[in-house]
Simulated scan of single mutants.
Amino acid sequence: MFAVVRTGGKQYRVADGDKIIVEKIEGDAGTAVTLETLMTGEGAAVTMGGAVTAEIVAQTKGDKVIVFKKRRRHNYRRRNGHRQNLTVLKITSVA
């Protein structure tokens, strides 16, 4: 059985036991969370709604992304970095 869930403005196809990395969700490791479910399915049968529960495994940070801006011939250069806060989730049940 699988489900399509939405969190952090993105959609993920998940099943029991999957681990996914999503944008930060508040909570400590071991906390159970309920995700917004768009649809569930098994094989070719698809139904709307359902419930997906997940457990927070860890709170981490993503890779650093460098933002570099330059305008040629104007002596203009800007360098900035960003690391996104992420949450690792383990799907415990799809109902």
Results as ranks from 00 to 15, higher is better:
residue 8 G to M: 11
residue 62 G to V: 11
residue 52 V to W: 00
residue 2 F to K: 01
residue 31 T to M: 10
residue 70 K to W: 09
residue 17 G to Q: 08
residue 61 K to I: 07
residue 41 G to Q: 03
residue 65 V to H: 13
residue 2 F to G: 00
residue 26 E to A: 12
residue 22 V to N: 05
residue 48 M to D: 07
residue 76 Y to L: 09
residue 85 N to D: 15
residue 17 G to W: 06
residue 54 A to P: 03
residue 68 F to E: 09
residue 66 I to S: 11
residue 84 Q to W: 10
residue 38 L to W: 02
residue 74 H to D: 14
residue 68 F to V: 09
residue 71 R to N: 14
residue 64 K to F: 08
residue 12 Y to G: 00
residue 77 R to G: 10
residue 21 I to W: 10
residue 5 V to Y: 01
residue 29 A to H: 12
residue 1 M to H: 05
residue 70 K to D: 09
residue 54 A to Y: 04
residue 21 I to M: 12
residue 27 G to Y: 15
residue 29 A to M: 09
residue 89 L to H: 04
residue 16 D to L: 00
residue 1 M to V: 02
residue 47 T to M: 01
residue 84 Q to A: 06
residue 66 I to A: 14
residue 81 G to L: 06
residue 26 E to Y: 13
residue 4 V to S: 01
residue 59 Q to I: 05
residue 3 A to C: 04
residue 44 A to W: 06
residue 10 K to Q: 11
residue 20 I to S: 06
residue 29 A to R: 12
residue 76 Y to W: 15
residue 29 A to D: 14
residue 16 D to Y: 00
residue 34 T to D: 13
residue 94 V to T: 02
residue 52 V to G: 01
residue 31 T to R: 07
residue 39 M to K: 05
residue 92 T to E: 12
residue 38 L to C: 04
residue 57 V to L: 08
residue 29 A to P: 10
residue 1 M to D: 09
residue 9 G to R: 04
residue 22 V to Y: 03
residue 91 I to Y: 03
residue 65 V to M: 13
residue 77 R to M: 12
residue 24 K to T: 12
residue 77 R to Q: 15
residue 95 A to C: 04
residue 36 E to A: 10
residue 48 M to K: 05
residue 22 V to H: 06
residue 93 S to F: 07
residue 61 K to N: 10
residue 32 A to Y: 15
residue 86 L to D: 09
residue 53 T to N: 07
residue 8 G to T: 15
residue 1 M to G: 07
residue 44 A to M: 04
residue 59 Q to M: 08
residue 43 G to Q: 05
residue 51 A to E: 11
residue 57 V to E: 09
residue 39 M to I: 04
residue 66 I to V: 15
residue 42 E to I: 00
residue 90 K to M: 10
residue 91 I to C: 03
residue 58 A to R: 10
residue 81 G to F: 06
residue 23 E to V: 08
residue 87 T to D: 00
residue 8 G to W: 15
residue 6 R to H: 09
residue 6 R to W: 09
residue 50 G to P: 05
residue 73 R to P: 05
residue 56 I to N: 02
residue 55 E to N: 09
residue 35 L to P: 01
residue 10 K to A: 08
residue 71 R to H: 14
residue 67 V to T: 12
residue 18 D to I: 04
residue 77 R to P: 10
residue 34 T to A: 06
residue 92 T to M: 03
residue 60 T to W: 06
